[in-house]
Design a protein around this nucleic acid. Sequence first.
DNA 1: CTCGGATGAGACAGGCGCGTCTCATTCGGG
DNA 2: CCCGAATGAGACGCGCCTGTCTCATCCGAG
Lengths: 183, 183
Amino acid sequence: MAMDRDQVLRDAAALLSRKSTATMDEVARAAGIGRATLHRHFAGRDALVRALEELGIRQFEAAFDNARLDEGTAVEALRRLVAESERDAQLLAFLVTENQLFEGDQINEGWARLDARVSALFRRGQAEGDIRIDLSPAWLTEALYGLIGTCAWAVMDGRVAAKDFQYMIIELLLGGARRSVEK
Amino acid sequence: MAMDRDQVLRDAAALLSRKSTATMDEVARAAGIGRATLHRHFAGRDALVRALEELGIRQFEAAFDNARLDEGTAVEALRRLVAESERDAQLLAFLVTENQLFEGDQINEGWARLDARVSALFRRGQAEGDIRIDLSPAWLTEALYGLIGTCAWAVMDGRVAAKDFQYMIIELLLGGARRSVEK
DNA sequence: CTCGGATGAGACAGGCGCGTCTCATTCGGG
DNA sequence: CCCGAATGAGACGCGCCTGTCTCATCCGAG
């Protein structure tokens, strides 16, 4: 069975996140299937993007659940969240940059729910005294998405080693680039 | 004179960074000019993207010059660089996500030169003892681009106040999200 | 082996955006 | 005021992509 729906979507995301104007034929080739088969499973380009959004939301809902955001400190939960996000980082990279989904209502609801969970996590960290209060939860949420996407690209381009994915993101996000003496 | 070449390009970047499949007509409308006029100045879509790349490289070369990257500490230079980058942040956001320019030879040379300058800045910071050595200059460079682009989007969406642009980026990049006692 | 479902390759028409053109209008300089 | 350059609007053909179809092939189940 050459047709693994989720894997096709992942391949599509990997390609589209780099070349958003890619042809349906290019997407099919990238996924290792024929264009006809691609059309059999996704009615059209819109349906494909919708499926990508749906998969992305579903995967990250699951990632959030696996990360057990409510357990331990917010900082610990954040580390688990980044670890859980690695698998679908390319998908996130595509979705973050594909902000033309401002028409979808159902989709935005899903993103709003995810944003709320991340935002709440940062807010909890601020309440616990571990996260700076001069950086808004909304910005930290966006920055987390951005860093994950950026690192996914950097890994794809070979500028960052795949094994360093989690470390580079979490260390930069939490600790920053400046060297401090006590760390 | 309704035709300000650089302003048209900036408007195009602002639109295309959000909707990369936007029509030439949409780009023209976004820039407040007619489609015919857009075609008079940029032979086609490819030429438009090329012009965007060229403008981006030119502007950031200038931004780097204005930031005087060699003066003072690397950290100080970095603050100036972020400040100088604010004006063309949307342009950078577009160019960073538009990685389909892997064919261009001249363009890549320009980016390589910019990358080298930023990378060298971080390396200098590491040598001075102010920047962590466990985060590679290549990653810090990518992260800087990513954060600038992410913040530009967040400002466009109203999730971050425009006046906080520099602060949010530089504080997160340098200090990180974790609250530390001595800062 | 036989059969049915799934796939790949290719053909086909239709649509949409692209690139070019024309023409009327506007704007600014002389 | 006059003139020429620049612009906006629209028309037009073209090319590429899309979406659908057909048909041959493959593969697994029975």
